[in-house]
Simulated assay, not measured.
Amino acid sequence: MSLQSQAILAGVDAATTVHRMLRTEESAVERSSPYIDVFGAIDELAVPLYFAPLDNLLGACIREHGPAVGIVVTSRRRLHIQRFTAAHELGHFVLEHEGSLDREILTPWSSRKDPRETAADSFAAEFLIPNWLLTMVAQQHAWWDSSRLSDPGTVYQLSLRLGASYSATCWALGAHSILPVPTAAELSKVPPRKLKKELLPSGFEPPHGWADVWKITDRDHGRKIMASPEDILVLDLAESAAAGYLWEVDDSNVPVVRIVHDHSAIDFDRIGAATRRHLLLEISERSPDSRIALRHHRAFDKSDSLGSLSLIACTSGAHPEGEFRGSN
């Protein structure tokens, strides 16, 4: 077995051990949350965690004297990068590596020369996307099918609901033998920018190119998502406009989201067909947990409703500069 293969196995085994020790699977089920709380895990292991405005580094695992250790993560990148960076640095700590300064963090199948970095990469990917979590989220959204999971658009949406990068999610699909490794590797070559554009109406340009684009469906009803300010929520809803029923965003959501696109379309080839309501909502405010709700009701009698769609959105985004003080 090559040194790289040994490093990957070492990282995966270490992540599995930490999951068992911290009972993360039981905690995720109890909280009904699909996200691994990597920052909380670092805190639970009594490792100081700091967010700093790093210019040329994503993160660092610092060992000063003997057992003294600390983890630093950039405050200048988006949340999913902070999460993977923190998990990578945690990997260095758990695997008892010497201090590490990381300018670039990759997926484990990247052609790294240093086995320690490969081990930390594989730890991070396994810790954030264990097989049980990937399976649970894919089944919740009716994606648990090889043909669905071979679609890059589906994998992108899956990565958002795992709080992981698109490339790390592709790696996990191969590592857990859900897809053949060559298939997963090919998927990883599709740029997320292209997948975002496919979800948006022609001619619509999001204000910020780095923002993620969420395709919200009835499978998200009652669930929690971890979005960031400037992210776009795409909704494609059947609407009985001819009968006077319209979808309306709850007024209490206004501080958290704003409508940036609203279009209705009718399928003229089908008699009596419902209108399709296409809504784009932009996350406009940071909030730890906000309810985003829509109701399908008559405009003149809001008590007469055909249905609703609601979800909980944590829109805090990336952690700002400062010491991590524990999860809420």
Score class of each variant (00 low, 15 high):
residue 1 M to L: 07
residue 11 G to N: 10
residue 16 T to L: 12
residue 26 E to I: 12
residue 29 V to D: 10
residue 29 V to H: 12
residue 32 S to K: 14
residue 35 Y to L: 02
residue 38 V to M: 02
residue 40 G to H: 07
residue 44 E to L: 15
residue 47 V to T: 14
residue 51 F to H: 04
residue 57 L to H: 01
residue 58 L to Y: 02
residue 62 I to G: 00
residue 63 R to W: 06
residue 64 E to P: 08
residue 64 E to G: 14
residue 67 P to N: 04
residue 67 P to Q: 08
residue 68 A to N: 10
residue 76 R to Y: 01
residue 78 R to I: 04
residue 81 I to F: 07
residue 81 I to G: 03
residue 91 G to A: 00
residue 100 S to G: 05
residue 101 L to R: 15
residue 101 L to P: 00
residue 107 T to W: 06
residue 113 K to M: 12
residue 113 K to D: 14
residue 116 R to S: 15
residue 121 D to C: 03
residue 132 W to M: 10
residue 144 W to V: 00
residue 144 W to Y: 13
residue 150 S to C: 10
residue 153 G to P: 03
residue 155 V to R: 00
residue 157 Q to Y: 07
residue 160 L to D: 03
residue 166 Y to G: 00
residue 179 L to E: 09
residue 180 P to A: 11
residue 181 V to Y: 01
residue 183 T to N: 09
residue 184 A to D: 09
residue 192 P to L: 11
residue 202 S to G: 13
residue 206 P to Q: 07
residue 206 P to I: 00
residue 209 G to Q: 10
residue 217 T to L: 05
residue 217 T to V: 06
residue 223 R to Y: 07
residue 223 R to N: 01
residue 241 A to R: 15
residue 242 A to Q: 12
residue 258 R to C: 01
residue 272 G to S: 10
residue 279 L to E: 05
residue 279 L to T: 02
residue 298 R to K: 15
residue 303 S to W: 11
residue 310 S to F: 11
residue 314 C to Y: 04
residue 314 C to L: 09
residue 318 A to K: 08
residue 319 H to F: 12
residue 326 G to R: 06
